[in-house]
Design a protein around this nucleic acid. Structure first.
Lengths: 350, 350
DNA sequence: TTGTATGCGTTATCAC
DNA sequence: GTGATAACGCATACAA
């Protein structure tokens, strides 16, 4: 009934032991007589003490048991992306040994009220991509000695990265199309920057998002002047809308192939082609990226690049765990596996 | 170069101001002369001070800016469920006004090393479902005065709930089937408890998960003796496997309808029926639950119960936000909307 | 095994 | 607008 909530000091007093003894009873770090243990627990019960305050404990320990996961986008949409979901899956796995919880954070919090990399009580951070905005807060985090790992992004010197051979991989897909005789190829890309409306990419446009840029450059190594259209997100709906514009022209000019930067976009493109009365792959070839299972695309099986998404997440988790133990940060690059499906074929009239 | 990291006290000393003044410069809670502000910032710069330590700040303030989201299952799989994803979406929305981050937690951490409801520095908690195990830690949380809201679960007296009319809703679907002449109906349910292997539910079996129980009881109000088979999770694969067993018998005994407790399960069941050479809905009627878009199920459109998943998450977020402001906890019940698709029809030979 | 003493880094309160 | 002071609640080194 006291206005103030009971603290461990109160419990110690009530149990007639010292604060440190009471503390030890709860932390279990040192052996305690069964008798005193019971005394303390009993006193705690009487006072309605619910165990050590995590805030105070984390200050004292210097650890909060929390790892931040920073997304570039709205959190709700992040989980609509199967690749992100798989990465989260691996991430939970990777941090399990150190028993950390995952705190969902946004790269740039538009509300400005939320916790950020610099204001949240975190032990480490995993960045999914890394925009310019984020780079600033990163200095503060580094200054504090908080381990940071970035998955597919460049967070500057000294920040270990979990990488993917995006450029090489995308080039393989492009080469595959070239070998099938395709020449008029269009690129269907992920967003080039946050909150960009869908539309054709102009040459002068900065490609702020690493994944988008690398995959685009990989494709252009084969098709140097291929036009590129950026979707607003990685979803079938976006792929559908984008592909409808891309394919919206008479036959001689219409692209004979679309290189999509994600499987969801590719799946949407397949739908769009069908919608326009085009056959895949007879009239239009389409490649994806990710190698995720796209529900309901059967009987199509995308020609795509299979990336180890779960493994990437797991590696990131393990990396921050290692760094928290004082071990050196590993830098890892994963490679994609090119998989030929039935959405690519020789160019029409070949 | 010092072994110790600089604190705000060091900065104050370096800038020749009091600690409180230095603090105010960073928190911005009080007006400060531009001159002193510059002095302090400069000193911070020199000392490599990266701003207030969130751990200490949260101890002092009594707020960490973190809201826990507690799942009953492996976190990775939680995001494979579209309903959960939608709820998370709404949840981020709901807590945005108080600017809180979401900490992902598991109901029962098997590793035992992770942060839990009682050891994590949280301001509030949102439970997705509530198992018996969780109930214990809940007392501790309540004792600490931390607001808790539960979505679709019973967390005991005094814990406000965001509910769904599961029982009534499921009864509607059952009545619909009854009105179409169905009599031999099987139930395809969600798990009855954590980590239960898939298989037929026996009468004596405790139904620990509220959603499963309520929907089952709703269906049994119409088909009192309908056999029920529990899947291991809510996925198309599970639905497929379960339905194959359910439908694995000669025609006179085979169920003419399956009431699935989720759209994913229903979609899997549709596939299983096709696989067995049965037509949907001519030979077998199938109903779902959730009203989510199941990619690739076209041309089928499930007869299902549409639930406001995003709204549920948002309501939960708003509820904890309100409670943190000292307002009384709202208790909300949402209702499903019954939607007839093309996966249900009159019983064969009617 | 238990107790004593101290500091973790901040911020709220109040007086000036 | 600025400064002095006092918590916030705990865990650890060390002594007993």
């Amino acid at each position: 009934m006291s206005a103030r909530r009971a603290t461990i000091a109160d419990v110690a007093r009530e149990a007639r032991v010292s604060p440190s003894t009471a503390s030890v009873v709860f932390s279990g770090k040192t052996a305690v007589t069964e008798a005193t243990r019971a005394k303390v627990l009993e006193a705690a019960e009487r006072l309605g003490y619910a165990g050590p305050d995590p805030r105070a404990a984390s200050l004292r320990r210097g650890r909060s048991g929390i790892v931040a996961v920073v997304f570039e986008e709205h959190l709700g949409t992040a989980f609509l992306d199967p690749v992100k979901t798989l990465m989260m899956d691996g991430l939970t796995d990777g941090v399990a040994p150190i028993g950390a919880g995952l705190l969902l954070l946004r790269d740039h919090d538009p509300s400005g009220t939320g916790p950020t990399l610099t204001t949240a009580p975190i032990d480490a951070a995993v960045l999914i991509g890394c925009s310019g905005l984020l780079r600033e807060s990163l200095d503060a985090v580094a200054a504090r000695g908080i381990p940071v790992v970035v998955i597919e992004g460049d967070a500057g010197e000294g920040v270990p990265r979990i990488m993917l051979d995006n450029r090489d991989a995308q080039r393989q897909a492009a080469s595959h199309l070239a070998s099938l005789g395709h020449e008029r190829v269009a690129l269907l890309t992920l967003p080039t920057r946050a909150a960009r409306p869908r539309g054709w990419i102009v040459d002068s446009e900065p490609l702020e998002i690493d994944v988008t840029r690398e995959r685009l450059l990989g494709a252009r190594e084969v098709f140097a002047s291929a036009p590129a259209y950026a979707a607003e997100a990685s979803s079938m709906d976006e792929g559908f809308l984008a592909a409808r514009e891309i394919l919206d022209m008479p036959a001689p000019d219409r692209p004979t192939a679309i290189i999509a930067q994600s499987d969801l976009l590719a799946a949407g493109a397949v739908r769009a082609a069908e919608d326009l009365g085009l056959r895949v792959p007879a009239d239009v070839s389409i490649t994806g990226f990710d190698g995720v299972v796209v529900d309901g695309l059967a009987p199509y099986e995308l020609t795509t690049l299979v990336q180890p998404a779960v493994e990437k997440g797991r590696a990131a988790g393990r990396a921050v765990a290692a760094m928290l133990e004082g071990e050196p940060p590993p830098a890892i690059t994963y490679t994609c596996e090119f998989r030929v499906g039935n959405t690519t074929a020789e160019v029409p009239g070949h």
